[in-house]
């Protein structure tokens, strides 16, 4: 098991992508240094115990001991979290989850929708460091919600295409619209994806079963460290995986979505 740390971290920078999408750079002691692509942090948002459980967030980027994560305000927890500012403290457990394994294949397709772009940013950087050829499609509702686009443009993708549903940045449409054109030119054996469940379902339907499709999943989580078995994800054989331990990036071919 990878070493897990419990730390009171400090917010270094707050980035408001939109009114509802916020990113935090936080300063950690050991968590940042030990974090790898595919992992997450588990945040105790409310010390008063009105929200008992922690909330998991994918790691979008790491710089030495600093971690970047992005979230959308969807409920009470994320709403409280969004009110924090620079120098405020955040109680986190991490790094959690299984780091991605570097695939043997050279050419990899990356498909990210909405907030799913966040974990794929660190993942892309990691795969590029491992000399992989990345072909990427990223999409969101509109230009503002297309997070990290400037950062992604600086990475050395073989191909990088953006989609927005309103056409305000890149091509008009969804990431899944771009799959057919890109796979006509090139055949992929490995895909990494993250985004809404509907998008992952569609991706799974489009590709041949022999192609390895990895996807970042979400599930209600308890401990986040493999003790409670709350975050069950059904496999094709009707048994369960635990997202916090086996994921959050799982081989979708094995999963019932």
């Amino acid at each position: 098991m990878n070493k897990i740390f419990w730390e009171k971290t400090k917010i270094k920078e707050k980035i408001n992508f939109t009114d509802k999408i916020i990113g935090f750079w936080i300063i950690t002691e050991n968590i940042g240094k030990n974090s790898k692509a595919g992992q997450f942090i588990h945040i105790k948002i409310d010390e008063s115990n009105s929200l008992i459980l922690r909330r998991p967030f994918s790691i979008a980027d790491v710089k030495n001991n600093e971690i970047f994560f992005i979230f959308r305000i969807v409920g009470k927890g994320t709403s409280l979290l969004s009110r924090l500012n620079k120098t405020d403290e955040i109680d986190i457990l991490g790094p959690l989850g299984k780091p991605i394994e570097i695939p043997e294949e050279k050419d990899i397709l990356i498909l990210g929708g909405g907030l799913g772009i966040a974990p794929l940013y660190l993942l892309s950087k990691t795969l590029l460091e491992n000399k992989k050829n990345l072909f990427a499609l990223f999409g969101a509702k509109n230009s503002k919600e297309l997070i990290l686009k400037e950062n992604l443009e600086k990475l050395n993708f073989k191909e990088l295409i953006f989609y927005t549903e309103d056409g305000s940045y890149g091509k008009k449409g969804k990431v899944t619209d771009g799959i057919s054109p890109i796979t006509k030119e090139k055949k992929f054996k490995v895909i990494y994806s993250a985004g809404p469940k509907e998008m992952l379902k569609k991706i799974k339907l489009i590709f041949n079963k022999k192609i390895k499709i990895y996807g970042f999943l979400e599930e209600r989580m308890g401990c986040g460290v493999g003790l409670c078995s709350s975050c069950a994800v059904p496999k094709n054989d009707k048994t369960y995986l635990h997202l916090c331990e086996n994921g959050p990036c799982l081989l979708l071919n094995e999963i019932l979505l």
Binding site: L51, L53, R220, M221, G222, C228, A232, P234, T239
Partner: peptide, 12 residues
């Protein structure tokens, strides 16, 4: 094998 998800719910 346990129960299908969701397996956990939180309240105040």
């Amino acid at each position: 094998i346990g129960n299908p998800p969701p397996r956990i719910y939180e309240f105040e």
